[in-house]
């Protein structure tokens, strides 16, 4: 049994958040850092789009600008996400494929989503939420989405990151994401509210971010049967993340597609 790390990197901007995930991934491929569970939040609020998405098709850049919302392209696929400052917790897991190989369901990429999402589900259980994995990349409570997840791999190492909703701000989400204008009706907002749920709705809004982070740490620790000890990013990670941050913040990357 090897020791895993738990990093709580707090509030940072979108570019740093994405850069640090990639830095941990790359240094893990060189075995310079251990398996890592990271939790983080976004300040300012931001939209992240999937690697394959077209910026102009998904994001209303004028609305983002006027609302002070950053825009970043992820290295992972999947859809556009509005990360509201204080409205969600994001986790990332950087783990070797070899470490997960013994887990049931791990046989293919879809299976690896299941395995890692099951650990999130275990964490949610700790705060009294009964959730389940829903293929392809969601976690739901009574059929309503509470978490979206995305992953990529480099040389035998998986990065999976995902959001866990604390509350929703659907009107702002509709402003910054390009949804057809007729969707911005009260009815459409209600429709999204019916398909999505949040931690605050499922349990009490008196639950703190710290409670949820700790629940995730314990959930992952039990699910993967390993100690996960609080730690800090290494100097090498911080330096590499600073370098990657420039790319994530560059227009050529953001508007790549």
């Amino acid at each position: 049994m090897t020791l895993w790390r738990f990093l709580d990197t707090g509030y940072n901007d979108a570019y740093w958040n994405m850069a640090l995930d990639e830095a941990i991934l790359m240094l893990r491929t060189e075995k310079r850092v251990p398996e890592t569970l990271r939790v983080y939040t976004w300040k300012p609020s931001a939209v992240s789009i999937g690697y394959f998405q077209s910026l102009e098709q998904e994001v209303d850049l004028d609305a983002c600008k006027s609302l002070g919302v950053d825009v970043v392209r992820r290295i992972t696929g999947g859809g556009a996400v509005y990360h509201e400052c204080g409205g969600e917790l994001t986790y990332s897991l950087v783990v070797s494929e070899d470490t997960l190989r013994s887990k049931r369901f791990f046989e293919d990429i879809q299976g690896s989503y299941r395995v890692i999402c099951e650990a999130v589900v275990e964490g949610l259980k700790k705060i009294g939420i009964s959730a389940e994995f829903k293929p392809i990349n969601d976690i739901v409570v009574n059929g309503k989405k509470i978490s979206g997840n995305a992953q990529t791999r480099r040389r035998g190492v998986i990065l999976q990151h995902g959001t866990i909703l604390l509350r929703t701000d659907i009107p702002t989400m509709f402003k910054v994401l390009k949804v057809s204008k007729e969707k911005i009706s009260d009815k459409a907002i209600k429709a999204v509210e019916d398909r999505v749920t949040t931690i605050y709705r499922e349990v009490s809004s008196s639950i703190t971010l710290e409670d949820i982070k700790e629940a995730l740490r314990r959930g992952f620790s039990e699910y993967f049967d390993t100690a996960i000890e609080p730690s800090s990013p290494t100097q090498a990670e911080l330096e590499l993340a600073s370098e990657y941050r420039k790319r994530f913040a560059s227009w050529s990357w953001i508007a790549k597609r």
């Binding site: 696929g77 556009a80 990429i109 392809i136 990349n137 791999r153």
Partner: peptide
Amino acid sequence: GDFFLYPE
């Protein structure tokens, strides 16, 4: 789109 493809 919002699909997944590996390697990206």
